[in-house]
Computed example of a mutant assay.
Amino acid sequence: MDETSRGRPSDRHTVGPSDVSGRKNMAVAVGLLVTCEAKRGMESEVEQFLRTGGEMAKDEPGTLLWFGVRLGPTTYGIIDFFPDAAARTAHLQGKIAHALTDRADELFTKAPDIKPLDVLASKLP
């Protein structure tokens, strides 16, 4: 996926007036899928980290949607979406990314796997 092709206006998917944040006409074009494997016995700490990350995401105006999820007994993920590549880059340089990096050795068996996403289709409220 070429960074220059991401986030073109024709590639954006708009959230209507009843979106969960109260913002209208959010254009969702790109995202991130982060997966990580918790160290044995660290599952509750990872879950608390994700809850804290969700609170921190509320302070990022360019982060339109943010989800911390459990994919399995010790596998967790973060899925978040942005209006464009610039907002995604800002997020990757922000507080949540720094916290993830700072605590990765403590919480996870290996470095989190971070994959950029391009939104091709969506169904949003």
Rank of each mutant, 00 (worst) to 15 (best):
S44Q: 14
S18F: 13
F108P: 01
L117E: 10
H98D: 00
K39Y: 08
A29H: 10
F67H: 07
G72Y: 03
A97S: 13
R40T: 15
H91G: 01
V34D: 07
Q93M: 09
D80Q: 06
L64Y: 07
A86H: 07
K58N: 08
G53I: 02
S21H: 13
V30L: 10
A90T: 04
P61W: 06
K24I: 10
Q48V: 11
T35N: 07
E37T: 15
D80L: 03
E47W: 07
P17N: 10
L65R: 11
L100W: 02
P83F: 05
Q48K: 13
A38F: 15
H91A: 04
R51V: 15
R88Q: 05
S18M: 12
S44P: 14
T52G: 06
S18C: 11
T101E: 05
D102C: 00
G54F: 11
T74N: 13
A87C: 10
A87L: 05
I78P: 01
G77L: 05
K39F: 07
L64E: 06
S44F: 12
T74I: 11
P116N: 14
L32F: 09
T75H: 10
E45H: 12
K95L: 06
E60A: 05
S21F: 14
E47L: 13
T75D: 14
A90G: 00
T35A: 10
L107N: 01
N25C: 11
T52Q: 09
F49K: 02
W66V: 01
G54V: 11
T101R: 03
R23P: 01
E43Q: 14
G62W: 08
N25Q: 14
E45N: 10
R88V: 03
D19P: 04
R70Y: 06
V30E: 07
